[in-house]
Nucleic acid binder design. Structure first.
Lengths: 342, 342
DNA sequence: TTGTAAGCGTTATCAA
DNA sequence: TTGATAACGCTTACAA
């Protein structure tokens, strides 16, 4: 069933059918209705490949996700879901590419096979081969996250540095003097993962400025690691009375370890950080934290990309989000003295 | 940069370049090398739309996921990740469509716009409009899950009915006589979600056969709901000493409620079910459960679909997985008498 | 208001 | 071993 068949059945030319569909040329009311009727009966839809070939655009977005080998975090999932949803809203499809580094076949297909009109890249590194590759191809793209040299591309990011600084300030105001940062995984930070680096920088700045003692630890993105890292922290640095974290996946493990050590939050220990809202709200007691608006991020990434696609050559735009720190119940005055574990 | 430009630079015709690329016709060693060199230098890749138009296939798979409005569960995420990964292995791209019911624009684009060579549908209902639609279009498809009338389509599913039956038998063998089933969400079950129905059927069958008292409760796919449902269960049915569940997302909440009620697993209460492995292993104590091999499911769904695509008209194939129940530490003999909450 | 025809970048048939 | 050429199904400039 192609446009020619529809034209035949409606007794018009193919171009008239095309124009009736696109509205780019006036079509008399009567023929338009006739055509629509035939189309409805035949269940016709234009062939996407033919249309893409002719128009030079695919009405499809590429979304580069971390390879499945490393299980995606809840927040990454939120990004994927919100990007897909936002794209669907404006009748755009989304092609997924699980690509970590460069030279991935699926990534190459995406950027150089003209399979998509633009690309959204997640989990950007400070130095990111995928961004370099994308730059070469002149394909519109936006990052969820930004590189070390962020001016030349469009991106949306969370201001982890600033937010962690404010978390530490909050803890310092409450009298805490020994504070730990629970970062993302060692590999991620080692590979130049932006949020990890910027959170650490913000942490160190605040610790220095407020004259505190800081210890920073990396932690894999899961509950088991969270529990283990907290145990180690207690063993090596019993003087620490508060932590700030950007590792939401570790929270359940930290909560469990806290309970196992017989510690009550926030009486014996304070905890805060930058995490997705539902993690903050589920923590017991609810976590004082900056809520990362994952859903908004995906939606605005699509907007940014649409802009780039619609008017190529538009100067890149940047959105740096610093959501307020929602005061809940997980932070309190520093305990007078270090308690022993139960 | 198109195939004509490559041909010009290599001093051959377009067809020769095409054949050099596909290998469908012999090309002399020397010209083949020359062409390859030019292609590498130019960074040429065939235009996917042109190729799809000519070949009548897109080298793309469609994956229908639940709409983002209802946040995806961990296991659903595993399916998505493993499908994408398996497809990438064989150089297939994956187009996502967030579609719950029928008549979704993105779903319609997928099935009738010839955007994909085949479709994988997740979260199949017993009566599923998407499956009906797919059947009409004669597009190859496979379900992760199966409808009430499963013979006419290819699918891969977990045998929730059988597995829950075995869980109940296991509990009965341990002397439990009052057992609860924690099912998935009310809406999901009400809408005819297969695993929910089949788990319930298996539960009722075993309860009847073993002459037990069973109570089944629906529970939303999150920790908060798990905690609340367990509290209600304790209040209304204090005689229940064990639960079987297919709702992994509720587990952390159940664990927390258990602790709050001062109950120790498995001394005071037993729990088992059918969940993804990492949930079972993270539970404290580790959960005796049938581990759903989410990664394998995605990979085999892609295999099944490839089969349908490669040889249309192939009789549908079915894979019903019944992974063994891994004996861990969350089930034990029924307590002698009902304990009061702490 | 409508029709004709060119062309998007491939692949594959038919000739050479 | 290679080259010309006709499709694939659509959109759109140009004619009428």
């Amino acid at each position: 069933m192609d446009i020619g068949e529809i034209a035949r059945r409606a007794g018009v030319s193919r171009s008239t059918v095309s124009y009736a569909l696109s509205g780019k040329r006036a079509v008399s009311e009567s023929t338009r209705r006739r055509i629509e009727k035939v189309i409805a009966e035949a269940g016709y839809r234009p062939n996407a490949a033919a249309r893409a070939l002719k128009e030079g655009r695919t009405r499809t977005l590429g979304l580069v996700i971390p390879p499945a080998s490393q299980r995606l975090t809840d927040m990454q999932l939120d990004f994927v879901a919100s990007v897909v949803e936002a794209a669907a809203q404006i009748d755009l499809d989304v092609l997924l590419s699980p690509s970590g580094g460069d030279h991935d076949r699926s990534f190459e297909r995406l950027v150089t096979g003209r399979r998509v009109d633009g690309v959204i890249v997640m989990e950007i590194r400070l130095e990111d081969a995928r961004v370099e590759r994308l730059r070469q191809t002149a394909l519109p793209f936006v990052g969820i996250g930004r590189t070390a040299d962020p001016d030349s591309m469009s991106w949306i990011d969370v201001d982890y540095g600033n937010l962690i600084t404010r978390c530490v300030d909050h803890l310092a105001d409450l009298g805490h003097t020994h504070i730990a940062l629970i970062n993302r995984s060692e590999e991620l930070v080692a590979s130049g993962y932006g949020p990890g680096h910027r959170a650490l920088a913000g942490f160190l700045e605040a610790v220095e400025r407020r004259n505190l003692t800081g210890v920073d630890v990396c932690c894999a993105d899961d509950r088991v690691a969270g529990e283990a890292r907290f145990d180690e922290l207690r063993a090596r640095h019993p003087e620490v009375t508060a932590i700030a974290t950007i590792n939401e996946a570790a929270l359940p493990g930290i909560e469990r370890a806290l309970a196992r050590h017989g510690m009550t939050v926030p009486r014996d220990f304070s905890i805060t950080g930058v995490v997705a809202q539902h993690w903050a709200e589920y923590f017991r007691p609810p976590l004082t934290a900056a809520d990362v608006p994952a859903h908004e991020i995906g939606a605005r990434a699509v907007e940014l990309l649409q802009e780039q696609i619609a008017t190529p050559g538009t100067p890149p735009r940047h959105i740096l989000l610093a959501p307020p720190i929602a005061l809940r119940s997980s932070t309190g005055p520093a305990p007078r003295m270090t308690r022993h574990d139960g």
